[in-house]
Design a binder for these strands. Structure first.
Length: 1029
RNA sequence: GGGCGCUUAGCUCAGCGGCUAGAGCGCUGCCUUUACAUGGCAGAUGUCGCAGGUUCAAAUCCUGCAGCGCUCACCA
């Protein structure tokens, strides 16, 4: 291919689809257990099927793809497992929201019909997500794409649940859960968000039973008093002895409840309470105890054997139908009220009856559902728990940590498989992981939803003495759990493994057992992802033999900070538990957060996410990937100011913004064309949140961002550099120089090969540490600055006639395409064919085996011997000389085409000769002459490396005033520098303690600065003399 | 309240003991020279948040302070 056949600029949309098609037809992303090379696997964090991916996902997937593509090029047997997550509550919520727009509710459907609706949503968004991954060039093994509710994943969930059940690690508990009264399901602790709210403290008087007075309790939730079963006081409280054994009559309800003593109770300030404890300022010393509606009260209730009385319905309205037996006539009017209404009504009742001692405003944080955003109600209910506090799980997660990342001393134990093998990048996240496990609590896994993995447990309650014989179901292959109910009956739970479904379930149903209606927490199936996607435990059934042993553990999990506790932890515990200690992955890489232009995290729920397809449309996939790689730093989350692309004019503009009720700044749902106010459009935010529907007259406006311009320009630069290089290397050129490898002869060639080798070292070192920004910078510097700006410009006069240089140019270009490929796969694959087809000769120390596709080409590993330190140092000086001459030209505004003459002293002359024409080419020199040659009066002086050089033919007329000014400023600058070095060298401490080579270097720099200043001074004197003073 | 991070050029960010503190964008001037105007060449712009300390040497390490952000915990 020649220059003529490649267009002048790179147009991503013209090449991306065909490149994707070539990868697909080659099947080069498909991995098999028997494949060549050491296995390397990565599991994609399966995105939720709730919505399309945004740039945060694009960032994570780009970084994974970089790792995966490098591994593949290094000859590893590489698997990148793609897939999506059913995201129980999130997906059910979006579908329910959609139904609500039609005026329908979930309960208007049968469970099956509703699940079908969700399934349809899932199908739609799964397709969108997979197509987004393909568009951004993610080299996933598409044939192995998984969904967390696939039969193969379901099999893993069933097996895991059964084994944990059988091993006593799953239990049924009546405990306080975080209850979402809107979605009416239990939430895990981490699904609760704390939000600051303005509330009040109400001071309520509870009369003593014996009429001898009252106690005053302080509460933020008066409505829960209906369920109070005690009042607590600190045993150190001086009032405690007098009250010992006394009881109070609960207002409204009339319930007689005890006063108990517990040191959990905060003492009021007046009685010596801790002044640093905010509660002490508000405390009365008496605490109302509502075990059924407060987690701390629940604990306190357990300690004192108190009854827990639930006074609310699942929708958090006051109700006497959920375990509240002693509802009085006085209390009955409150039934049916919402929490908020009851709070007002009950405080009003206390006021009306003279029992309200006071009210104080109080700002505090209250748990809200991350899904429905209403306050979570601590609610007593029956749920399934995984006992992750059991050492078999919690301890295993901690012992997995790498020794040097574990904070503190760990107890000496016998090492087992996987111990000490888990490493975090950046290392500081190990602490997050460790602290979470040290404070871990049992994991509530049942969710009162319809979308998810149905809990495989069948239950029936029996009268005492009527229960089936112990182990009756176990003999058939199931597992049993018994529990005594509060009414004395025995509840029998039977957990059935999937393999015994047909044998046991019909019998259970016939005997009146019913399956638990709930589904499992989504993270239960996510926790099995590295196992379930590989066919555990039924690989043979799904023709996946060997997958598990080959690709588990994976190399690295790449994910976001908040996922450490939600997912990383649980994968480690489960993988280790089911696989004899084996880790799910060796490394955990935590990437930075992509924020919008206002510093807010991009999120699906806020609707401020940018669709990667928008960026691909305006800049191309490679541009997006390069910039995402470049902005991935270890400590800094990244802001991405987003513009709106007007669909009428195709011009980008900063959107008008609006502030949401939650205080977030977002693009307004509709935008107006800045150049034509009659035209309006719907922003991506408007469409994502459903606030504004795009129409023909008011179309959807895509997002874009100028941040991606660098990537687009870089892809184009690479394209044109390749185009130029190809023109120098015609395919009909003479045969290879020789069969033996070519070694560089010219300084410029030795330099570019050294720079290549150095760049590869930098990239490899950064890859090993998951530092992506330095990779992008190294590529950019090497390709743009070294290769394009210096090398290609320098070889223009010589390459056409120098076969050795041609071989080196081809090899360097070939290596560049390989190095760039993981970050910019499309443009490199497009250029690969023409580059690989031109004639080749081996270059010593740079082995680049032929390959059909760039995607499967060998990763360059230049020999260490390719780094020529002398060439690097000498070319540094060449660059300094070129820059000095260019600087002169720039100052004099010399036309680029005007050739000048350099009058060089011996040192500079030697340098120019060593560079063999490069200085002349890059500095625009007509010729270089010795300083003994006569020079014209228009010659301008140049202080360089302590020598006094002149440049002539620069200008026709020397402006003596300007010249004097310039020389004076050179002298000032050089003397200032010399002063700095002198100061350092006159410091005895520096001479004594700094590294000797550093001192030596400073001496050299001082000598040079002084010589430069002297040279400039001499020139200035001569100038003054020639003018005649 | 605990933990973590951030504060460097107008903007977005690198650098994290030692060359005269960098990049991209933006800005100024010159250049449409046959790879690239999505370009080339040159240039201007910084008391590295503030105050102490350690060191021969601090943007870089330590302490304190101020501001911003994330995260965990806590609803008397």
């Amino acid at each position: 291919m020649s220059l003529v056949t490649l267009p002048k600029s790179y147009s991503p949309s013209e090449h991306e689809p065909s490149v994707t098609a070539r990868w697909e037809s080659a099947g080069c992303f498909h991995a098999e257990p028997g494949g060549a090379g050491e296995p390397y696997s990565v599991f994609i964090p399966p995105p939720n099927v709730t919505a399309a991916l945004h740039l945060g996902h694009a960032l994570n997937n780009t970084l994974q793809d970089v790792l995966v593509r490098v591994a593949r090029m290094r000859g590893r047997n590489t698997l990148w497992m793609p897939g999506t997550d059913h995201a129980g509550i999130a997906t059910q919520s979006v579908v329910e929201k959609r139904l609500a727009q039609e005026g329908k509710r979930r309960t208007d459907f049968t469970r099956e019909a509703f699940v079908e609706r969700v399934q349809a949503w899932k199908n739609e968004y799964e397709a969108v997500i997979l197509s987004q991954l393909r568009l951004m060039g993610a080299s996933c093994d598409e044939a192995r794409t998984r969904f967390t509710m696939d039969p193969v994943c379901t099999a893993a969930v069933r097996e895991a649940f059964f084994r944990l059940f059988q091993d006593g690690l799953i239990e049924r508990g009546k405990r306080l859960v975080n209850w979402d009264p809107v979605t009416q399901t239990a939430l895990a602790d981490d699904e609760v968000e704390m939000e600051e709210v303005d509330g009040h403290f109400w001071y309520l008087r509870y009369p003593l039973e014996d009429g001898s007075g009252h106690v005053t309790v302080a509460t933020t939730r008066p409505e829960t008093m209906l369920g109070d079963t005690a009042v607590a006081i600190n045993p150190r409280d001086p009032r405690a002895p007098a009250l010992r054994g006394k009881r109070v009559r609960l207002p409204i309800v009339g319930r007689i409840i005890p006063i108990v003593e517990d040191d959990y109770v905060v003492m009021p300030l007046a009685l010596g309470g801790d002044p640093l404890d905010a509660k002490a300022q508000f405390a009365t010393g008496f605490l109302k105890v509502t075990p059924a509606h407060d987690p701390n009260d629940w604990e306190l209730g357990l300690r004192h054997g108190l009854e827990a009385i639930t006074v609310m319905a699942p929708d958090a309205s006051i109700s006497d139908r959920h375990g509240w037996k002693d509802c009085s006539d006085e209390a009955r009017p409150f039934c049916g009220m919402s929490r908020e209404a009851a709070r007002a009504a009950i405080s009003q009742w206390f006021k009306a009856n003279g029992l309200l001692e006071g009210v104080k405003p109080y700002r505090h944080s209250v748990g809200h559902s991350y899904r429905s955003h209403v306050p979570v109600e601590p609610y007593l209910s029956d749920q399934w728990y995984v006992k992750v506090t059991d050492p078999r799980l919690a301890h295993s997660a901690l012992s997995a940590m790498a020794d040097d990342q574990f904070d503190g001393v760990r107890p000496p134990t016998t090492r087992r498989l996987g111990d000490g093998g888990l490493r975090f990048f950046p290392a500081r996240y190990a602490r997050t992981y460790q602290q979470w496990h040290e404070g871990i609590r049992d994991w509530c896994i049942s969710r009162q939803l319809w979308w998810g993995h149905r809990i495989p447990v069948w239950a029936k309650a029996f009268e005492p003495g009527a229960t089936p014989a112990q182990g009756a179901w176990e003999s058939k292959g199931a597992s049993e759990l018994r529990r005594t109910l509060s009414d004395g009956r025995i509840e029998l739970f039977v957990c059935v493994p999937e393999s015994r479904d047909q044998a046991i379930v019909p019998e259970l149903v016939a005997q009146g057992y019913t399956q638990d209606p709930d589904v499992l927490d989504t993270w239960f199936s996510s926790a099995l992802w590295p196992l379930s996607t590989l066919g555990w435990p039924v690989g043979a059934r799904f023709s996946m033999e060997g997958m598990l042993d080959t690709f588990n553990p994976s190399a690295v999990l790449s994910t976001a900070r908040e996922i450490i506790t939600l997912w990383v932890s649980r994968m480690v515990m489960f993988n280790r538990y089911f696989m004899g200690g084996r880790l799910p992955f060796r490394h955990v890489f935590i990437h930075c957060v992509v924020q919008d232009g206002f510093g807010q995290k991009m999120s699906k729920s806020l609707g401020n996410g940018v669709d990667p397809r928008d960026i691909i449309a305006t800049h191309g996939a490679d541009a997006m990937r390069f910039v995402l790689t470049q902005i991935s730093t270890a400590t800094q989350d990244v802001r991405l100011p987003v513009d709106v692309l007007c669909p009428f004019t195709n011009q980008a503009f900063a959107p008008q913004t609006t502030t949401t009720s939650s205080g977030h700044v977002v693009a307004a749902p509709t935008q107006t064309c800045p150049t034509d106010p009659s035209k309006t459009m719907v922003s991506a935010f408007g469409a994502a949140t459903g606030v504004a529907e795009p129409t023909r007259e008011r179309p959807l406006a895509r997002n874009t961002s100028a941040r991606f311009d660098i990537g687009r320009n870089f892809a184009n630069k690479l394209w044109n550099a390749s185009r130029f290089a190809l023109a120098q290397l015609p395919s009909d050129a003479p045969a290879p120089v020789s069969d033996s490898a070519v070694a560089p002869a010219r300084l410029i060639d030795r330099w570019i090969l050294s720079r290549l080798a150095r760049s590869v070292s930098t990239i490899n070192a950064s890859l090993a540490e998951y530092q992506f920004n330095p990779i992008a910078d190294a590529l950019y510097d090497f390709v743009w600055r070294d290769f394009c700006d210096w090398y290609l410009e320098a070889i223009k006069p010589t390459v056409k006639s120098d076969p050795v240089q041609q071989a080196i140019l081809r090899a360097v270009l070939d290596a560049i395409l390989r190095l760039m490929h993981p970050v910019m796969p499309f443009v490199t694959e497009t250029l690969w064919d023409p580059v690989r087809s031109i004639h080749r000769a081996k270059v010593t120390g740079l082995d680049l085996p032929l390959s059909e596709l760039c995607a499967t080409a060998r990763w360059p590993e230049p020999a260490a011997s390719l780094v020529d330190s002398a060439a690097l140092a000498q070319f540094d000086t060449v660059q300094a000389l070129v820059l000095a001459i260019r600087n002169l030209r720039g100052e004099r505004k010399v036309n680029d085409r005007r050739k000048v003459v350099l009058h060089a002293t011996s040192g500079a002359l030697a340098l120019v000769h060593a560079a063999a024409g490069v200085v002349e080419t890059l500095a625009g020199l007509e010729r270089v002459v010795g300083s003994s040659e006569p020079r014209p009066g228009t010659a301008v002086a140049l202080a360089f490396m302590g020598e006094e050089l002149f440049v002539s033919a620069l200008v026709d007329q020397v402006d003596l005033g300007a010249e004097r000014e310039r020389l004076a400023s050179v002298i000032v600058d050089r003397e200032r520098a010399a002063g700095g070095f002198r100061g350092r060298l006159s410091n005895a401490g520096y001479l004594a303690k700094a590294r000797p080579e550093l001192v030596e270097e400073t001496r050299r720099l001082l000598a040079q600065a002084e010589a430069d200043a002297d040279a400039a001074k001499r020139t200035l004197d001569a100038l003054t003399a020639s003018v005649g003073g």
